[in-house]
């Protein structure tokens, strides 16, 4: 009997979860994702099916760096903070990687330095926010200017990366399928996926992760401190994580473009923030999920695909993203209004 009933109850459990106020914004994101997929399937399936592994493979190839950024940003936004520096850090890491590889440094060291540069910027922001009471917006804005300035010190020209090992990493992929239906998994996708999984485990299965959520519950994380949890160090770490993710993302972007360029990633922080908000995070803090943010990235990428398929100009993407953003913010607003009325 019980074995027969189990699938049913898990199904209903999932249904209940989707309607839980905590998950409702993410449900909205999923609905949006499905909607785009369905519309895409109906409109663009003349020659071959729109829905295909190839679609998702391409989506992830183009957006793995954004996924990693969004994951890091999710940590920060859950605590009620913001990190504007990530786009500039991506550019700086890309340039550093290119410069060091040209300078003949060993590949492993270059990659490690790239990630560490990101972590260093995160630490800088975290310390300013936690120990000098600088607002996250301003602290990360300063870090952004700093990173942009350093970019220009490293090089104002686009640096192509010709390093063989690096090229091999960029080219490595697992191929599936044949001909036009073939799709592949490359290194960036695997790294992004690994970052996502690690972030999920940290956020949902460790005390640190739950403290991150607690920090966003209001009153400046006061409750967390009174509960005897490490409020101060957690807040610093959140920015370190975001910076580290920006570092990893910088390397992924370098792998994607096989170059470093000082004007890379202008406005990329907004893409990341937008993806996180679309993914159901509350900018006031306290709510948000890395899996939601990942869904947000997919929605973001799919919008671009749809716009390309429709033959619309690329600026439509920004307008659409703005509209979607507005929609999600309004959705969150009504949800939180309803919630505060309930209690």
């Amino acid at each position: 009997m019980t074995t027969l009933l189990t699938p049913l109850s898990t199904a209903s459990q999932w249904g209940a979860r989707l309607r839980d106020p905590r998950y409702l914004p993410v449900t909205g994101t999923l609905v949006a994702l499905l909607l785009i997929l369905v519309v895409g399937q109906l409109r663009y399936s003349e020659k071959r099916s729109f829905l295909s592994m190839k679609l998702f493979s391409n989506l992830l190839v183009d957006n793995s760096y954004l996924l990693v950024l969004a994951v890091g940003m999710t940590f920060v936004i859950i605590t009620g903070g913001i990190d504007l520096s990530v786009g500039a850090v991506v550019a700086l890491v890309g340039l550093t990687t290119a410069k060091l590889l040209i300078g003949g440094f060993p590949l492993w060291a270059v990659l490690a330095i790239g990630v560490l540069v990101g972590a260093a910027f995160g630490t800088l922001i975290g310390v300013m926010v936690q120990y000098f009471d600088v607002q996250p917006f301003i602290a990360s804005l300063a870090a952004m200017f700093l990173a942009r300035g350093l970019c220009n010190v490293v090089s104002v020209e686009s640096l192509g990366i010709k390093h063989e090992g690096f090229a091999a990493l960029a080219a490595w992929k697992l191929k599936f399928g044949e001909g036009r239906e073939s799709w592949s998994i490359n290194l960036s996708m695997l790294i992004a996926f690994a970052v996502l999984v690690v972030a999920f485990v940290i956020l949902h299965h460790t005390r640190f992760g739950r403290t991150v959520y607690g920090l966003g519950s209001g009153a400046g994380g006061n409750a967390v401190a009174l509960m005897g949890l490490r409020a101060a160090s957690t807040r610093v770490w959140v920015y370190v994580i975001s910076g580290t993710c920006a570092g990893i993302s910088g390397i992924l972007f370098a792998l994607y473009t096989k170059s470093g360029f000082n004007l890379t990633g202008i406005g990329m922080e907004l893409d990341a923030i937008a993806a996180v908000v679309i993914g159901g995070a509350l900018l006031t803090g306290g709510g948000g999920f890395v899996l939601g943010s990942a869904t947000g990235v997919l929605v973001y990428g799919l919008l671009q695909v749809v716009i390309a398929r429709e033959g619309l100009q690329s600026w439509w993407t920004k307008v659409l993203i703005g509209v979607v953003l507005l929609g999600f913010v309004l959705l969150q607003r009504t949800l939180s209004a309803r919630r505060s009325r309930a209690t």
Binding site: L270, I273, A274, Q313, W315, W316, T317, K318, V319, L320, I321, G322, V323, L325, L326, V329
Partner: peptide
């Protein structure tokens, strides 16, 4: 931020 993102697109329109 909504208009910061969408605004340039609108200008392009």
């Amino acid at each position: 931020m909504i208009l910061m993102v969408a605004g340039r697109g609108i200008a392009m329109l």
